[in-house]
Design a protein around this nucleic acid. Structure first.
Lengths: 189, 189, 189, 189
DNA sequence: TATGAATGAGCCTTCATTCAT
DNA sequence: CATGAATGAAGGCTCATTCAT
């Protein structure tokens, strides 16, 4: 992958996201991506080694730029408020970028995903785990195994985003608060 | 004359589930299914119109036999206990049939899914909604929109099943109870 | 081919003609024939060795019953009148059995036709040649090689039948007479 | 970058004609065409949308380049001589390109032919009709419906070409003249 | 004999990838 | 670097034929 980015990589990523969201990860073809990105199909192979690498690259790009970037929050706030900030960020992001989420969903369960990409997930999970552990120390979070608590947060946001996108419900501050209440009630001690 | 053999459909379904779980829904080929099911590839087209129909049929089969069948529970018990029964059933089922769950995941986000298949989901959701509404009337469930509560239950089981399967954690009664506590705390009034 | 004819062979032939006329010789499948003839596809192989033989059998059947049977005319009449009788017969037959003609056309140019079937054509041609030769002896037919005269008669009826069928023009006695005039003018001395 | 090569289309057409003439339109496969044209099978789909389009394109190409191009004859000559010129041209062409004629025959009666392709036929017929009408005005052609006269010319050339090709008779000027005499006698007033 | 489920070779077509320009 | 024509393996599906009942 070339470092000198002419915006071509951006275009390729955008095209890939749009096409996947519209037609599914099956039915996503390299030439369709090229066409949508307004480049020749051969050019894709200048920037990426192949389809698999392109998709993995995009996955990591989205996870890092899109999801993980929302984490480094304001460390001075109380835990619950930090969690709320994250929750709000993530939820907003996922819903206003439903195409990206659609790509993430499909890619995650596909056979394209590499071992390395899977680890990006774990990074996110790691951050959550840290929060939960801190909460447990302060006795404000349930003293349960993280394997029980993390799927709740992770599964809830995911499904919430998917549900709201499918039903075309728009996100209000009130809804965000309500969902956080639900989430917090679930994990609080 | 040979009679159409229903066992063959079972074999086809099993082969499809196993292959999807192992190699992904991409890379799932009709001939691979046939080979694994120990029939000729042409035979698939006696039982199904094509790949798309086969997958949709399997999806509905799994949803109905596998998930929805767990719902019609013991109506005489208090709500919370009914929910626990369902929760326990669904969780056990999904975890002990992780290949099926892998198929369901991948299929649901694929472009193969038909409008009709999507409605099966809604059936499940409908049942959940009924429970939640009953709980709201008894003031034991949060008075929030179902669009907020359902993704919690749905997303949590899904992710729990996926998480436990990936991490190869086995399900104990204690874990089931703990996860239910988390779930119940989330939705209870 | 079984001799004991239950009418099944008739049904098979009719089905084959109808389907070929409607969908072309390409797209003609054994199971479609069976279905239309209201028998099982396996049964076709009791009466015929295979598709090729079935088609050749039908071709010869149609040529013999349909076309050649119109030839043995009234030998006592003058040649021109005999020719007119044949002309009229053949034309009427071909137009009122356009499906059969469609089959004959397509089969004749297909790769299914066997050497033996090709010879049936020659029988018909032989009869025509005999007439023409007789005519030449009486100096009422052009003294030209039959290879020049026969294609005229043969090609004309064929094309006439096809043309009238396509244009859905119905055959009147007057038209028959006119076409015969044209034909006769062409070959007469 | 390689440029689309028009010679490739020629090669594809030639391969298609040769194969159809040899093995029939049934049994004509895309991969056989590709092999004979010395290209990869996928390349066919760069130049044509599919088998059907390829065949229709070839049909129109042959009709236009091959048959219709012979029509715009010398308008200053008397009608009969114009007709002779056309007759001679068409006959020569069809016999010296018997493979093309074989293709045309088979394609015309196949289910591949599109509505649009059928209209090319009508163009040819239209030209003939114009000639005949002119001839009728000059009282040198029979005052009969064109539906009666056209099949004669059309059917005669067709069958003549087919007959001579099958019998492997070569075309001499004398034969051309004789066949024209026959044709002219048929339609002349 | 009759049935129609089962077979599997082979077809058309797609598409990731390569390569000549 | 960029292009898009060319490649060819592989997929979904059809259908003549067989065979268990």
């Amino acid at each position: 992958m070339r470092l000198k980015d002419d915006g071509k990589i951006e275009a390729i990523f955008e095209a890939t996201i749009a096409l996947t969201s519209a037609d599914g990860l099956d039915g996503l073809t390299m030439s369709a991506i090229a066409k949508k990105a307004k480049i020749a199909s051969g050019t894709l192979y200048i920037y990426f080694e192949g389809k698999e690498q392109l998709l993995n690259e995009l996955y990591r790009y989205l996870m890092l730029k899109g999801t993980l970037s929302l984490l480094p929050s304001i460390a001075h706030l109380p835990l619950k408020q930090q969690l709320f900030a994250i929750w709000s960020n993530v939820l907003k992001f996922r819903i206003s970028n439903s195409s990206q989420v659609a790509f993430l969903h499909q890619f995650r369960y596909s056979s394209f995903i590499s071992e390395e990409s899977r680890k990006v997930d774990e990074q996110f999970v790691g951050h959550l785990a840290a929060f939960l552990n801190a909460g447990k120390k302060e006795f404000i979070v349930k003293d349960m195994d993280n394997n029980i608590l993390i799927p709740l947060m992770y599964g809830y946001v995911n499904n919430l985003a998917r549900h709201f996108t499918l039903k075309k419900i728009s996100l209000t501050e009130k809804i965000i608060e309500q969902t956080f209440v639900v989430c917090w009630d679930a994990i609080k001690a």
